[in-house]
């Protein structure tokens, strides 16, 4: 089987019913999608499949053979974060960060789909995502701001790029 992960073509050798989440994390070493529940209930594993946000824990990899997968590593880099990533930093929308990759992917899909800064609509878009730290308010603020703005005032302290590993690139 084959996947295009964050723009890089990858061969997949896992068994056909292996959840996409496990293929990404354990075979391809793309570790941003998190295994919160392995049952579709938390959203920590959400990645884009052909541009659409999906729970990777519930997708047998054979069902998406040939698809293009985007994880949070593929949305921006530590030195050049995407608008949503910048907004999450600017609004302190992450605490422990466990839910953040799924939230950022879902938020990006919401904004790409023309989503507005209406907080009720944003809440619906992330209603499958659980955050046990932030109380959601800062996440809603961050997503709302990213619907209107692409640059945020943040200081980027990126590690030395020669030592950065962006999941999916080899």
């Amino acid at each position: 089987m084959k996947l295009e992960v964050n723009g890089v073509n990858r061969e997949v050798r896992s068994e056909p019913l292996t959840p996409l989440l496990d293929v990404l994390r354990e075979e391809l070493d793309v570790t941003s999608p998190k295994a919160g529940c392995h049952a579709g209930g938390c959203g920590a594993c959400t990645v884009m499949v052909d541009g659409k946000p999906r729970r990777s824990c519930l997708i047998p990899v054979a069902a998406v053979d040939g698809a293009s997968i985007t994880t949070v590593e593929g949305l921006g880099t530590p030195k050049d974060p995407s608008a949503v990533q910048q907004s999450f930093i600017h609004h302190y929308a992450a605490q422990c960060g466990f839910c953040t990759p799924g939230m950022v992917v879902a938020a990006t899909a919401y904004i790409d789909g023309g989503g507005s800064d209406d907080k009720d609509e944003i809440a619906k878009a992330i209603s499958g995502h659980v955050c046990r730290c932030t109380g959601y308010t800062k996440i809603l603020d961050a997503i709302a701001a990213a619907t209107k703005q692409t640059e945020f005032d943040i200081t980027i302290i990126a590690p030395d790029p020669t030592t950065v590993t962006i999941g999916g690139s080899e």
Partner: peptide
């Protein structure tokens, strides 16, 4: 049968 897998995959994962 697995269609979307949103029920069956939970059962397989556990």
């Amino acid at each position: 049968v697995i269609a979307g897998g949103t029920i069956v995959m939970q059962l397989l994962n556990y």
